[in-house]
Design a binder for these strands. Sequence first.
DNA 1: GCCAGTCAAGTCCCG
DNA 2: CGGGACTTGACTGGC
Length: 320
Amino acid sequence: MIVKLGYVAMSVELQNASPSQTMTFAQFSKIKDREAAIRKLERIAVSNINNCLRLLKHNAGNQIHFFRLSSRLIPLANHEELPDWDYIKPLKESLKEIGDYLKEHPMRVDFHPDHFVVLNTPNKDILSNALKTLVMHKKLLNGMDIDSEHRCVLHTGGGYDDKEKALEQFIHNWGYIPPSIQTMIMLENDDTTFTVKETLYLCEKLGIPMVFDYHHHLANHEEVEWQEDWERIVNTWKTSPLPVKMHISSPRSEKEYRAHADYVDPEMFLEFLHKIKGSVPEIHCMIEAKQKDAALFKLMEDLQGRQEIKIVDQSSFVVE
DNA sequence: GCCAGTCAAGTCCCG
DNA sequence: CGGGACTTGACTGGC
């Protein structure tokens, strides 16, 4: 089984390369010339996308084949006071550059929109805003000429005091999501509300790939045993053009269990890999750690020299 | 140039 | 029911 590691959105090694620079609506409103304010938003967005390209080059240079793009590339993209702003148009060229680069340096990239994109809300306006944000992600992928199938990880959403009802609400709302947006989505078990089994229920019913977050599972489960669910999780990827993907992180501390630690505990990771080895030929593990790419490199270093590990390159290895 | 506070979103928690 | 916590990185303001 080959394991490929990825990391999230920004680098601690590459300086001044934030893909998430922003302007709040309060700042925006202070600028009297609205056109000038919009131009400023556009300059920030272009800078974010250019930094994204720098990050991709950094990744390619370090043999990293898997990366989560920032979902904050375009500040105020879906703000209700800016419905007339065509935010994609001024970004066309920068986005195409990314697309061209990715054709030369193939890398799996995807998004994880912030947790306020809630698809199971009973509130129409919130659903409509969630959909707008997903459409923005779709446009970004189109601009980069990336097939948008299975490129957006989401959580199931709110519990609303009745999780069973909340799951049915998800299924109900799913009918209002255009198919081209539906195919973008993957669902992840979360650390406070919806467990692996609950997420699987939706994924199987609606044909959505499930992203297993091991740390979330340890924080939130009916039963801690997960191996009997693993085959079902793998099965949700059967129709996907992409390999199974999952999230790996370690608790910051016993007290702050749900928060992400700076680095990933290699022992926990190895133990996990031994349990799933042989179940898939290839798996992509997204490292969610405070130290971002440095955590990925440290984990690779920690795994070096282990009997059962054969290092392939700076971010991949084979487990036997 | 540092530290505390603010910002954005939706849900959840508390009184 | 209303206000604050939660989360995250970026940014602002006070000193």
